[in-house]
């Protein structure tokens, strides 16, 4: 039970943040809602169309395909990056000179801007001049991400894993470092196996940071734009046209502001729902384990 707060003055301290968020997020979002019910041909002239854009979008095959691609991409990314990040964090040293070396090498990919990462992998994967593309071609693999959808997907997934697994590693490592030695000593006395230590000590203690890692990686991968845009531009065909790429094509390429606003809102709702579900489920698991566990 949370004690009731009697001093409400602290709310005034929140006021500046409230104003900044209103100015930078809430008011632009309101504009998007306004656009989603109207059509425009420029010159700041709008025509009320009601729910037309939402109705069209929900029944549009193009939207379904982009949505499925996005879900598939985020699922693959989470399925690879979370276990891999935990595995790397478990192998990292806890003391000695290896700690700063590992931490700095892990932090390096995170410091590179997204468009630079895209450019690096775009060149790296090229069959004519790229190290990866050329090597694979020399070994006899039919790898060409500009023509083959599977190669394009593989390139983008490996790039994302290269770029963002470090984030999961650093978070998981922080969780592991916060476990007191007494837990390991108790496990040793009980003769617990390595797997049992991981299952009953390390994993529960990492739960909260892993929740943050999953949320961050989910939201980020669900909104991915720059890297795939630089590498494949959404192609070959539409095979890597994720929702954000499709949205930009619609809003800026075709100047269909109304449909693009409707798509933005549905996109926003999906992210909101999935993040809320992830957060609630993970927090519940955390609560249960802290109530019933060590």
């Amino acid at each position: 039970m949370i004690a009731k707060q009697t001093n409400q003055k602290a709310w005034f301290m929140v006021l500046p943040v409230f104003l900044v968020v209103a100015f930078s997020a809430v008011i632009p979002l309101m504009t998007v809602v306004n656009y989603s019910f109207q059509d425009t041909f420029g010159s700041n002239q709008f025509f009320w169309v009601g729910m037309t854009w939402f109705r069209d979008l929900i029944h549009s095959e193009r939207f379904h395909d982009a949505f499925l691609r996005q879900i598939m991409f985020s699922s693959i990314i989470l399925a690879i990056e979370i276990p891999l990040g935990i595995a790397i964090a478990l192998t990292m040293p806890k003391k000695g000179w290896g700690v700063p070396v590992c931490l700095i090498s892990m932090a390096l990919p995170l410091l590179i801007p997204w468009n630079v990462v895209g450019t690096i992998w775009q060149i790296f994967g090229r069959v004519d001049i790229g190290l990866l593309g050329h090597t694979l071609a020399s070994l006899g693999f039919d790898y060409n991400y500009t023509q083959d959808p599977v190669a394009a997907w593989l390139t983008i997934i490996i790039m994302d894993v290269w770029h963002w697994t470090s984030l999961v590693v650093l978070l998981a490592y922080a969780g592991l470092c916060s476990i007191p030695d007494a837990y390991y000593q108790a496990a040793k006395i009980d003769g617990a196996s390595r797997l049992a230590v991981f299952r009953y000590i390390q994993l529960p203690k990492m739960q909260r940071v892993l929740l943050i890692a999953i949320l961050l990686r989910f939201m980020d991968s669900f909104m991915i734009y720059t890297e795939p845009f630089v590498i494949t531009g959404g192609g070959p065909g539409n095979s890597t046209t994720f929702m954000s790429i499709d949205l930009v094509k619609m809003a800026i390429g075709q100047f269909d502001l109304g449909p693009a606003a409707a798509m933005s809102l549905i996109y926003f709702l999906v992210i909101l729902l999935l993040s809320y579900v992830f957060y609630t489920v993970m927090s519940n698991i955390g609560e249960e384990s802290s109530n019933g566990g060590a």
């Binding site: 008011i27 309101m30 504009t31 809602v33 306004n34 019910f37 109207q38 700041n44 709008f46």
Partner: peptide, 15 residues
């Protein structure tokens, strides 16, 4: 407020 393209229904919604 024309830059935000307000309409009566959307204004009612936010209110």
């Amino acid at each position: 407020l024309s830059w935000m393209a307000w309409t009566k229904p959307t204004a009612t919604f936010f209110i």
